[in-house]
Each structure stands twice: as structure tokens, then as C-alpha cells.
Design a binder for these strands. Structure first.
Lengths: 161, 161
DNA sequence: CATCTGACTTGCTCGTTGCAAGCCAGCTAC
DNA sequence: GTAGCTGGCTTGCAACGAGCAAGTCAGATG
């Protein structure tokens, strides 16, 4: 028997978080969702993930409340998009910590990817206030900036609600 | 062919970090290493992980520079222990972000697990200075505190120098 | 010598991933 | 009409990886 162990009921909050976020692809799906991706086909194309795996990952993320599935109009027909919930957007500190660690301790030609407060233009950590200018940090005033990013800067997606 | 994709050479630092830290068990191994576990047998017993998986995970963590394998004397014979390196101890913000998210967005009877600055006794985020008292944060003055923890408080392991 | 312990390694089985193909609804082209 | 396209899945297959059990090996201990 090789059933994958679940840490969903662990006492340790790190283990419970790892139960969802620690699965392969999940962190990258969340990264792209945070960067604004909402549609199945876009996740598939951007990540190169297999369809069936994407289906199960998205379902688990919806089940755990990180994403929500909403209908939208495409042309004249109804489709569905996956939007970040509050819980999903709250994973930003996890992504930020991973990015910081990855930049510091893994090798790459690329420069850092930073989180910037677009109102003051300076880098900051996620939190209540901007590390640089001290003003309250609104989610809508945050963007990822990196030389390797296509447009140079990517605004963060807002949670639904 | 179903060989697991590697993100070790990705441009995105989040993907490179996820390549190591996103594997099953790895985050929990790192959590326990941060809490002071150093020996194979102890990791095995505490986590309930299969031997062969633990072997490969520890080897990858050593290979990626998060842990280092050091000889030590046990009775009169030489054994090996796995100690955190600087890179390994720098993963603390990742664990902290996961723990915070896990406490906020997964259900459990247990209370929060916080990172405390033992000099002032207050909770803080990892960083250069204590969020509560403002003094510089030394690794040796940090501990995890949670009602579910055996001793109530666990000091963080220091990296080898 | 036999036994014990820690740290692995090997073998087996089954779940999961990757890949390819198929399906289905609704729109567009002819 | 019907043929095709597109997005979002589902299904089938082969290979990898996790869980489990058992075996190995070195050095201490009885």
C-alpha cells in the first residue's frame, strides 16, 4: 500500500499547510494565479502541466478554499475561471519567502524577483505596512518585478469577495 | 516516460525553491531539523517516514546545501549527523509563512505555533529585528512556542559555522 | 561468538505523474 | 446542416515514486 499520507489533520500548522501547498505543481499554480492567471487552458500552457494533474490540483485548491470556481462569459457562452480567494491570496508570504530563499540559495543567471509597492516604487515584504515608505500596503498596490518577467512588472491578482 | 520534472534550472526563483522544498516530506524534515533533530533514526521515528525516502530526501538536502553530514562520536564509534547549514536555517521564513498560513486557513483544535524572541518573550516574524522589542534578532534567541509542543517551547537549532 | 543498533539498501506493490487520445458543449465557417 | 474549433475535462497506458518489509553491514557490547 502506498497511499499518500495526508497531513490535513496534523497538530502542527506547518504540516497542515504542507498537505496542500507541498504537492507538486501546487505552489506554481498558486504563483501564476497570484500573477493573474485564471483559466484552465492558461495554467496548462504556462506551466506545461499534464491536464489530469491540473484538474486534480485545481479541484483540491478549490476544496481547500484557496481558489473558487466562477462562471464567466466568453463570447456568448458560459465558461469557468479559477479566482483566488482570501485564503489563496494569503499564501503570498509563502511565495515571497520561497522566492527570497530561491534567489539567495539556488544558482541562476537571473536577477532577483522582488515584490514592489507600486505607490512608492520600492521593494517590500508582504505585511500590513510597506517596509520602505511605511504606508499601509494594499493588495492592489503590489506587483512582482524581475528582469526575466515578460512585461517587467506583474500586478498581483485581487481575491474575489 | 514519467520522470519527475525538475525546476532546478527555472528562471523563477520560486520554482527553483519549490524544486527542493516542494518535495513530499522535505518541509517537515526541515522543520524538525530546525527544531533540533539531527540523526537519521530520530527523523524516521518523529516523522514516520519510510527509510528509503528519508535516505533520498536527506541526500538531496545535503546535495543542495541545506544540510551537511558531519561525523560525531557515539559511545566509542563514529556516526553521522545531519546539521543545518546557513542555507538550511535561512528556510525559516518559509516555514514561518507556512505555519502562519496553516494556522489561519486550515482547521485544527490546536492553537497557533508562534516564533518567539526569548529575550523579550514576545512573538515576532523572522527578520533582522524583533517585531516586538526592536532589538536585533539572533538565531539563538528564537524558539517555537505552541500549546501542543511537548516542552511548550523549542529553541531553534543553530547552523554549523 | 552472538547480538544489538543505527543507517542504509533492496525488492515488491500500488498510487501518482506524464503523455496521448478521446469526449462533449457551444460557437463559427462553409 | 455538418464540419471544425476551442476550452475543460476524462480515460488509458507506461514509468516513476512512496509505503512497507526484509536484508545488509560496521562497530560496540555480552
Amino acid at each position: 500500500m502506498s497511499r499518500r499520507i495526508t497531513w490535513a489533520d496534523a497538530v502542527c500548522p506547518i504540516a497542515r499547510a504542507a498537505d496542500v501547498l507541498g504537492e507538486p505543481w501546487t505552489l506554481l499554480i498558486l504563483r501564476n494565479a497570484t500573477a493573474g492567471t485564471t483559466r484552465f487552458e492558461d495554467f496548462r500552457a504556462q506551466l506545461g502541466i499534464a491536464d489530469n494533474v491540473l484538474t486534480t490540483r485545481l479541484a483540491k485548491l478549490v476544496d481547500r478554499g484557496l481558489l473558487t470556481k466562477l462562471p464567466y462569459r466568453d463570447g456568448g457562452r458560459t465558461r469557468h475561471e479559477y479566482r483566488l480567494t482570501q485564503a489563496g491570496s494569503d499564501a503570498l508570504p509563502v511565495l515571497h519567502a520561497l522566492g527570497t530563499w530561491g534567489h539567495a540559495h539556488t544558482s541562476s543567471e537571473a536577477g532577483p524577483t522582488t515584490l514592489v509597492h507600486t505607490r512608492c516604487g520600492q521593494a517590500t515584504r508582504p505585511g500590513a505596512k510597506c517596509d520602505a515608505c511605511g504606508k499601509p500596503l494594499a493588495r492592489t498596490d503590489l506587483a512582482w518585478r524581475g528582469s526575466w518577467l515578460d512585461e517587467g512588472e506583474i500586478p498581483l491578482a485581487d481575491p474575489v469577495g
